[in-house]
């Protein structure tokens, strides 16, 4: 297998793995830019993955081939609502945001598994009939080299992810809302003095992050696993969190990092058919994406500093 063949093989898989990470990492960007640490991304993603599969199974007969897309919206809504719990705890109740996030992660998985057992009477759901389809982009896929790499067998969700990353960049850097969001995350007291409702902005940001993580989870379950069980998400949310840090809390940076982590995951999946890498036993290969994540955090970014007020609840009148 030549080098180019390997790339033709790896790049589409990488992008497919990257899409859920991009969505979730963007969610993280919204939340943390507003000053709320969101380690709950994993649990929000689990919820999205579960709702996506559930909706897909129950409404396939009603919506036909549109089902996976409408399932994304359902997952978005449910995870957005679920994120309110994290918002209430971290913003209004001044909880330790990491602890609250851990609680949400456990809660998300527990609720999803509880409902799975209740509805399906077993540890995982049935397989969905209609996954998110992949297709060859007309004309573009005929371009030599680039065509088969980027435009063959593309999931619509991947294109959507990149589009949303650009929209997020626009919202955060070019709109009044984005300016307020960043202000609230850097110096909430100054923002408050200027008449910005700090807590309101933070609530909105956390809910958006839940909605995006929900979409990410539903994309993952509807493209990769096609059912839901206890190991469906398996750390994707945390990896998205790492992508957000790796991307220095910037939407486009987060997207790039997510694609890099997607590549690391693709390596674990397609590795057995690539020379050199296939020498590594598959068991160890599964650990590779996580090793790469640590290496990336340790080696390339140096000291990453997040938004200044990240993790601190805003208490009016205190310095």
């Amino acid at each position: 297998m030549g080098f180019l063949d390997i790339l033709y093989f790896m790049v589409p898989v990488s992008i497919a793995y990257a899409a859920p990470l991009i969505f979730t990492a963007l969610g993280g960007v919204f939340s943390e830019r507003s000053g709320v640490v969101n380690i709950a991304l994993e649990g929000l993603m689990v919820m999205g993955a579960f709702i996506g599969i559930l909706f897909n199974l129950f409404f396939y007969d009603t919506f036909g081939s549109w089902t996976p897309w409408i399932a994304l919206i359902a997952a978005m809504v449910v995870s957005g609502v679920f994120a309110i719990l994290h918002a209430v705890a971290s913003i209004s109740f001044r909880a330790d945001q990491v602890v609250s996030g851990v609680a949400i992660n456990m809660l998300g998985l527990a609720i999803a598994l509880f409902l799975t057992k209740m509805i399906f009477d077993k540890g995982q759901t049935d397989f969905i009939k209609k996954a998110i389809p992949n297709f060859d982009v007309p004309f573009l896929s005929d371009i030599p080299v680039i065509g088969p790499m980027f435009f063959k067998g593309v999931y619509g969700s991947s294109i959507l992810a990149i589009a949303v990353a650009i929209v997020t960049w626009y919202v955060i850097y070019k709109t009044p809302f984005g300016l307020r969001l960043r202000a609230v995350g850097e110096h909430p007291m100054a923002a408050d003095t200027m008449g910005v409702n700090v807590n309101k902005i933070r609530y909105i940001a956390v809910i958006i992050s839940g909605a995006l993580a929900g979409i990410g989870g539903a994309i993952y379950s509807q493209t990769m696993t096609r059912d839901f069980g206890h190991a469906t998400i398996n750390g994707q949310g945390f990896m998205a969190l790492a992508a957000m840090i790796f991307g220095k809390w910037h939407p486009i940076g987060a997207m790039g990092a997510a694609i890099f982590f997607g590549f690391a995951q693709a390596l674990a999946v397609v590795g057995p058919s690539i020379p050199i890498i296939k020498e590594i036993p598959t068991g160890y290969l599964h650990a590779l994406p996580y090793v790469v994540t640590i290496l990336a955090l340790a080696g390339f970014i140096g000291k990453a500093t997040g938004p200044k007020a990240n993790g601190k609840p805003y208490i009016k009148g205190s310095r």
């Binding site: 719990l85 209430v88 705890a89 109740f93 001044r94 909880a95 330790d96 602890v99 609250s100 851990v102 609680a103 949400i104 456990m106 809660l107």
Partner: peptide
């Protein structure tokens, strides 16, 4: 855990 975190 959630309620302990919301101790405030």
């Amino acid at each position: 855990i959630f309620f302990v975190a919301c101790g405030y």
